[in-house]
Design a protein around this nucleic acid. Sequence first.
DNA 1: ACCTGAACACCGTTCAAGT
DNA 2: ACCTGAACACCGTTCAAGT
Lengths: 226, 226
Amino acid sequence: MNKKTVTRARRDDTLSRERIIEAAIDLLDREGERGLTFQALSAQLATGPGAIYGHIANKADLLTAACDAIVARAVMAPLDGATPQAAIRAVALALFDAMDVHPWAGAALIQAGGKMPVVRILECIGRQISALDVPEPARWASACALVNYILGVSGQNAANAQLARSQGADRGKFLAAVANDWTQLDPALYPFTRSVAGQLREHDDREDFLAGVDLLLAGLVDQEVK
Amino acid sequence: MNKKTVTRARRDDTLSRERIIEAAIDLLDREGERGLTFQALSAQLATGPGAIYGHIANKADLLTAACDAIVARAVMAPLDGATPQAAIRAVALALFDAMDVHPWAGAALIQAGGKMPVVRILECIGRQISALDVPEPARWASACALVNYILGVSGQNAANAQLARSQGADRGKFLAAVANDWTQLDPALYPFTRSVAGQLREHDDREDFLAGVDLLLAGLVDQEVK
DNA sequence: ACCTGAACACCGTTCAAGT
DNA sequence: ACCTGAACACCGTTCAAGT
């Protein structure tokens, strides 16, 4: 076996921002957040670490760009025809599922500030809010609330997935362990948390996520009437 | 000037988890997330980096513990007497303000999984949800929705603060720059985002945050009636 | 003009030696 | 039993040299 031939991937075409981002997504999906290294990334691209800096500003930029690729695909999901409420639920679910497949993207999303991936979501939600009869001045706050809620869930799911991975457990085992921790809290200090520990173990995240979206939508309709 | 005397802080008492966490908070507040180094931390504590590992498992543990100290203080804010709604608004605001003063805590909060700081918030919100007439099975989802929303806003604010810091701008300047970016988006693709760019520049985060809490609360009351 | 990869600065964590 | 701090493994980023 020739080491050079085996180790190095073929260089089909020239290095580009897109190819780098694609390779980064591959790496993140396979090895998790800790697996994304300029060393590993450049090895996969059959080049040196320095080459990447010709197309990407730094690691934060790379993560945001990779996250944006995921979000862009999710936001393109079909969402026309139905009511604005249904459309909002559809995008929210598409994002939830995308973050479920790519947990690192949830963490990246939260660190992206007002950058592209967040803007994509804001735009998508905002249009539907406008289609509802939410009065003009309330649209900004309403869209923000929905976006922030989605970001919060994404971030929390990402953290759970990462912790689970680092403990070598799957999602179910990890949540069961957390539920168990909750059961052992002081009953005098944490009655509520103890009472819902069972629901943490058995709950369907996806459904709970949707319930939150519906809560916000219900509040919106309420506002609309006034 | 004697180097040793000047450089080293006095060691009032023996090293403890509490003293380490306090020093970490100091460092994080002064220098931001990037400033928290085991090197810098141990220097401030007048010891070696290794000593810290006697009391703290690793850096993630340290960040969670520091965040928990902030959250614990915020959650203790006065919130009795008034209605459950008012109490929820009060904790939410207290948390918002705490994260505003300690932006790093927002980021740490999101990475804490189901750990202490999140549990504290869940417990606090959950009790008030129980005090409302939300039916039993919906309490878990309702409390989760509120917690996730709070986490999302905290995380986003933390990211903004960190980006602003890294660009050497204050919060106002940073948001103005983001708003400017939004103004230059393609009008055909991002009509909504462009239309709210002005509101991003002038908005009061605190008020928008509360508006989101109110939206969720309105949805809750709606649910209650049904 | 773009890639290459050694080198730099730095950081979390460990561990043998000290007290 | 606990601290000390040098050492290790590793990682983002730079830059002189190559093509």
